[in-house]
Structure formats: structure tokens, C-alpha cells
Design a binder for these strands. Structure first.
Length: 382
RNA sequence: CGGGGCGUAGCGCAGCUGGCUUAGCGCGCUUGGUUUGGGACCAAGAGGUCCCCAGUUCAAAUCUGGGCGCCCCGACCA
């Protein structure tokens, strides 16, 4: 990707009303754009990170045996009345009437819908266990949206639901998820603590939340619940057991605020110059900085290197702007690219300088060895 | 919803107390030139419903009233 055609716009100063580190840096780095309070667009740089995080989550969910689906954001209020949560959620839900005067809402979560699905297809104990998940946009009319993306009214969430035959088997699903969560957060470069928590509106028997370390007080970034048979009884999600009797399934649900994870990663990985992405979620692994754009040789090598690394499936950004070295360094630091490939003085000797954003460690590498250098970097981070 | 703060060029701000005709500054942007290892320099430019509506006044960014929006603190949430 070349900077001049990438729709990346950084700014020298953060917006005056941003308070939190992640909020400031995401704006300044041009990752997100605010439409209204608590509602954001993801610009290319932000979307890349969001995708990396989503992919990590997806991999670990799949490994844990969960199956991906995609449920609708638009839901009928009637379903929520059945589960007795329509009143309970109350004003947190965005409710409106459609043209037929039916009460509709934008889903703040999906226990009702997923239960409705499973109910239709689940017949025998032989169909169990089942774990279904999705990565999808949730809508919550928060009392007070704040801290940018950290508490927003529209956000991306991974929600997974487990259906089991017995409490013991449900317990096993719960632990599988807990393990998967720890793996996910580790891969995202987050250190988390687990605390038992109030189950709130979701309800159920027991829940634990995953809290990311960082400067921001919020985060809670994940929450897992043992739901028991609350929902399955109210929504009639039953199966026939091996003794021929009909029983409610035992449920669990497991959420991760994907957009909040992105913010949490920043809260835990930055310095005075900007973001420091872990390689696993970085929008680009490396950025090529041709310092002297009026030197034809430099520009030519930069372009060749960009094409070569890109075709080697590396996430590579080439800063091809006619900007001074200072601007390029400052922006590379701000947007937090883990490796900087500097095409400067040593280009005459056929060498580039590769600098690690986090440690500031620098390596002189021959132009023909750059690709090899990144292969080993990625191997170490795999 | 209660409390506090803010709204002037793309961004950051000054001007408002004590109304005055062409509303400023820094950064960014455009053009030309000089630069090229840490946000460079010179010159010339472009860019504004001063959040909206109403009122007071000869005259409103500035005073008054109402509205809208945004941020922060509290209770809830991924």
C-alpha cells in the first residue's frame, strides 16, 4: 500500500475534546472518524486493526469448536417480550416502529435470536453440544457514551453462545471459552485479569469479566456467563434426552467487545510519540521511508522493495509522500508501525536501516536481505 | 437524568468583560523556488452561515432568551 493512495490522514494535534489516550491517538492517527457522540466510522487504518483482531478471535473461536454464523441486527420486539427482557433492557435499546406499525429494535445482544434459531433445529441430545458465534455490530443507546470507541452506541462485538445437555457439559464449554479468551488476549498483546462479576441484564447464574491492564478505567473487554436454563425455559429451547423426556438446554454466553479491544491495546501500548502496535494486530508490519524523494535511486529502490514485500504477502506501507524526513518519522511513530525501513544515507552502500518502533533497536540490512529479515520477524511472532 | 465546561477556516486557538464598519493568529492546504536523517525555509495565494432561531440596538461573534450539538464527572454496560 502506498501512502498517497491509502486515505490515511494524520493530524498534528488531537481534537480538543478527546480525553483518553486511545481516543486521542485513534483520531490523530486517522483510524476513526466521529459522526455523532458514540458513533464512529472506521477509516482504512482503523479497519485494518479491527480486522486483525477479528481474525485472531475467529481463529481461536474455531479452534475451541465454535461455529460462525451471522445474525440480524434488526429484531422484533415481540421476541424480547417472550424472554421478559424488553422491559429490563428498557431505554438501552433503540426501539422504533416499522411501516406496518410493528415494534422493532436494533439488537443490543443476541440471546433471543440465537435461542430462536437453535430451538428450530435442535431435536435430540445427539445434536449437542453446540457453540455458535458471530462478529457483528451491536446497538446500545448508552446513557452516556464516552472515551471515544471505548463506550459507544454502535460497536463491533464477538458474541458466542453455548448449548449443552447438562450443567457439567455446560461447565466444560465455559472453560473452553475461558481458555480461548486468554489465548485471544495474549495474542493481541493484552494482559488481562479475570474477576467475578455481576451478571446484570444478561442474567444467569455466574459470570466473569476480563479486564485489560491500562490507563483507562473502563475496558472490561470480555465477559463470559453461565446462563443455566433461564433463557431456554422462557423461550422453550428443549431437546429430547436419551430417556425420552424433554429437557431445556443449558446455555452459556461469551462476549468480546472487538472495537474495545482495539482501544485497550492502544491504552497498553503507546509512548509520547504515538501508538506502538504489537506485530499481531498492526495495520502494517513495516513502513518504508524513502527520506529523499528527489533522489531517483531512492525512489526506485523504495518502489521495488514495496512491490517485492507486498507480493511476499507482507503488510507493507510505503510513505511515498513528498514530505520531509521529520514528518515521515513522526507519522510512522504516531500510527505505530512496528518496523521502519529507512532508505537514507546508506542506500549508496546498498543498505537500509530497519528500526523497531518499540525498542528503538536498529539493524543495517542489505537491500536484498530485507525480505528474509521479515520472514524471521513473522516466524517469531507466529 | 443531575453537576461542570465548550461551540469562531480542515485542526488548535485569540477576539466577547466595555457592541463599530475589511474577524485575526499558529498549523495544515494551493502555486513557484530552495532543501532532504526528526514535524525545514522564502515568496505569493485560497479558505468563514462566528452552532441555529428569535429579541435588544443606528449597529451583534460580542448583550438577552430559547433551542441544538460536543466533552468531562456520577449510576449501567462489551
Amino acid at each position: 500500500m502506498k501512502w498517497t493512495s491509502s486515505f490515511i490522514f494524520t493530524s498534528r494535534k488531537p481534537p480538543a475534546d478527546a480525553e483518553t489516550v486511545s481516543q486521542k491517538l485513534m483520531h490523530q492517527a486517522g483510524m476513526i472518524d466521529k459522526l455523532i457522540s458514540g458513533v464512529y466510522s472506521y477509516l482504512p487504518l482503523g479497519l485494518r486493526v479491527l480486522k486483525k483482531v477479528s481474525d485472531i478471535i475467529r481463529e481461536e473461536m474455531n479452534k475451541a469448536g465454535a461455529i460462525e454464523i451471522l445474525m440480524p441486527g434488526l429484531q422484533p420486539a415481540s421476541l424480547w417480550k417472550k424472554s421478559k427482557r424488553f422491559e429490563k433492557m428498557g431505554k438501552d435499546m433503540i426501539v422504533f416502529k416499522d411501516r406496518h406499525n410493528r415494534e422493532m429494535l436494533l439488537g443490543p445482544t443476541h440471546e433471543e435470536v440465537v435461542s430462536d434459531i437453535v430451538k428450530k433445529y435442535l431435536k435430540s441430545w445427539k445434536n449437542l453440544p453446540v457453540m455458535l458465534y458471530q462478529i457483528q455490530t451491536k446497538f446500545r443507546d448508552e446513557i452516556r457514551p464516552r472515551f471515544g470507541i471505548i463506550r459507544s452506541r454502535e460497536f463491533l462485538m464477538k458474541d458466542c453462545y453455548s448449548f449443552d445437555r447438562t450443567d457439567q457439559e455446560s461447565e466444560q464449554s465455559y472453560f473452553k471459552m475461558k481458555e480461548a479468551y486468554l489465548k485471544i488476549f495474549e495474542r493481541c498483546g493484552l494482559s488481562v485479569t479475570i474477576q467475578t462479576a455481576d451478571s446484570g441484564v444478561i442474567g444467569g447464574k455466574f459470570s466473569e469479566e476480563f479486564v485489560a491492564a491500562g490507563d483507562c478505567a473502563e475496558l472490561e473487554i470480555g465477559h463470559i456467563f453461565k446462563l443455566g436454563t433461564d433463557y431456554s425455559e422462557k423461550l422453550n429451547v428443549v431437546y429430547v434426552d436419551n430417556d425420552g423426556s424433554e429437557k431445556p438446554v443449558v446455555m452459556g454466553c461469551y462476549g468480546i467487545g472487538v472495537s474495545r479491544v482495539v482501544a485497550a491495546i492502544i491504552e497498553g501500548n503507546y509512548d509520547e510519540k504515538g501508538i506502538i502496535w504489537p506485530v499481531s494486530v498492526a495495520p502494517f508490519t513495516a513502513i518504508i521511508l524513502p527520506l529523499n524523494m528527489s533522489d531517483n535511486n531512492t525512489v526506485e529502490i523504495a518502489n521495488k522493495m514495496h512491490d517485492e514485500l507486498q507480493s511476499a504477502k507482507l503488510d507493507i506501507l510505503l510513505d511515498d509522500r513528498e514530505e520531509s524526513a521529520g514528518v515521515k518519522f513522526a507519522d510512522a511513530d504516531l500510527i505505530g508501525i512496528p518496523y521502519r525501513i529507512i532508505l537514507g544515507r546508506k542506500i549508496a552502500e546498498g543498505k537500509v536501516e530497519i528500526v523497531e518502533r518499540k525498542t528503538k533497536r536498529s539493524h543495517d540490512v542489505g537491500i536484498e536481505n530485507v525480505r528474509q529479515f521479515f520472514y524471521s520477524v513473522l516466524r517469531n511472532h507466529a
